[in-house]
């Protein structure tokens, strides 16, 4: 098609009109993703739902930004494991002289123990720390875990905790994809 006499100075990308229908069709299809669904499934939505969605989401994001900091239970558990190992080693050192020679006591150097060895020891399941041991660490916290043993928590309570708090789940990490 020839250009009209009024827009001789304007150029268009090569193949613009040839591919126009395809691009328009794609755009319509994209815009209409909502329509076939409503028509075929019977599901409807409140009026203006999508128009007000962003502002509601924004409010929720802002309120979450000001929420309290969460204790990372996993780190606490690991800390307890490591502390327990350290305590066990200390006890070993204290009682060692009564059962072995004095030389062994003086030559035992705890600084030579690699922290990774301790972690491996924990990961291998060689040491178990009970939930009560963990609970004792929190005796100054308002809700006394010691009184309400963790063992008594049912699955729903735990799931609720994970839902409400900012515990990051593995699937959210794009590096896992």
């Amino acid at each position: 098609m020839k250009k009209s006499k009024h827009n001789q100075e304007f150029n268009i990308p090569e193949g613009y009109f040839e591919s126009f229908e395809i691009r328009l069709q794609q755009k319509i299809q994209q815009e209409n993703t909502v329509l076939p669904n409503t028509q075929e499934s019977g599901f409807t939505i409140p009026e203006d739902y999508f128009d007000t969605f962003e502002s509601q989401l924004n409010q929720k994001i802002q309120s979450q930004k000001h929420s309290s900091k969460v204790i990372d239970l996993f780190s606490v558990r690991r800390l307890i494991y490591i502390s327990s190992i350290a305590a066990a080693i200390t006890l070993l050192i204290v009682f060692l002289p009564t059962t072995s020679s004095e030389t062994s006591y003086t030559t035992f150097d705890t600084s030579t123990i690699d922290i990774m060895d301790i972690e491996n020891y924990i990961n291998d399941g060689t040491l178990e720390v009970s939930d009560n041991d963990i609970a004792q660490l929190f005796d100054d916290i308002e809700f006394s875990i010691a009184e309400h043993s963790i063992e008594k928590l049912n699955d729903d309570t735990v799931i609720e905790y994970f839902s409400e708090e900012e515990i990051q789940l593995d699937y959210l990490d794009p590096e896992n994809f």
């Binding site: 989401l57 994001i61 979450q64 900012e166 990051q168 959210l172 990490d173 794009p174 590096e175």
Partner: peptide
């Protein structure tokens, strides 16, 4: 809403591998 909140918090880690 929860989906977008999680996206808000994690999208910076998205490297575009998928």
């Amino acid at each position: 809403q929860n989906v977008f909140i999680k996206v808000y918090k994690n999208v910076k880690k998205f490297k575009g591998d998928s």
